[in-house]
Design a protein around this nucleic acid. Structure first.
Lengths: 110, 110
DNA sequence: GTCTAATACCACCGTATGGTTGTATCAATG
DNA sequence: CATTGATACAACCATACGGTGGTATTAGAC
């Protein structure tokens, strides 16, 4: 029985996944979509298993995905995951802009 | 002796602070910059002290700051903190764009 | 000055997280 | 099909995190 893992793209997981320097570096490297987990692991001062766990956290957050190429699995960054995070920040900035506008309006009316 | 607390604006703290629904909600509410910690705390199903800790985490991350108004302290969101996070995501998207461009170029040359 | 509302801080507790080592699976290769 | 390179997963450990209640500090109100 195959139960496909659920990728939720919720903000908790996405921002949590990005709150670690190793994982952010993996995201950056995986944009090119050429690195397997072994190649990634070689670059960080920690065990292979630790890097694997970081990739798993990124995968659960929907920031990267893996697909087989031969006997390796290649990690590549998922643009949509990054955009979910960015959209939230954009919303905050939009609220900020609206607030500034309201305040400017108030000053103008007084 | 007064030792001012250091606000670092590093990505670990910023994304970590945003990885919690309560804290994101505080950031959103504090954009208007009118809420004291008591008013904030009333909105969440947790103790006053818990909300205070959330605000402290946001403050250490540079996402909000507090200043006295009368006997209260008002929490307001710091736009620059949000922008630090957004800039990193923008960089990733830019890397993505460059990669797509390189690939398109390769296809064209073949 | 005394009282009190608003905030800050401390100690504690359960659970999640980041790391480790060891073992199991899985697919190409000989 | 046995081997082996690449990945997955489980058990374990130390520390960080999110919550609690209780106590201290601070600044207006009286």
């Amino acid at each position: 029985m195959v139960v496909s893992m659920q990728i939720v793209l919720d903000h908790d997981r996405i921002f949590g996944a990005l709150a670690d320097a190793t994982r952010r570096d993996i995201v950056r490297r995986a944009i090119d979509g050429q690195a397997g987990v072994v190649e990634l692991a070689e670059r960080y001062p920690m065990s292979f298993a630790a890097v694997q766990k970081h990739v798993a956290i990124l995968e659960r957050a929907g920031l990267v995905s893996k697909h087989r190429i031969g006997r390796r699995k290649v990690v590549h960054t998922n643009l949509e995951g990054l955009r979910v995070a960015r959209r939230l920040l954009d919303q905050y900035e939009e609220l900020w802009r609206e607030r500034v506008e309201r305040m400017t309006q108030l000053v103008r009316e007084s």
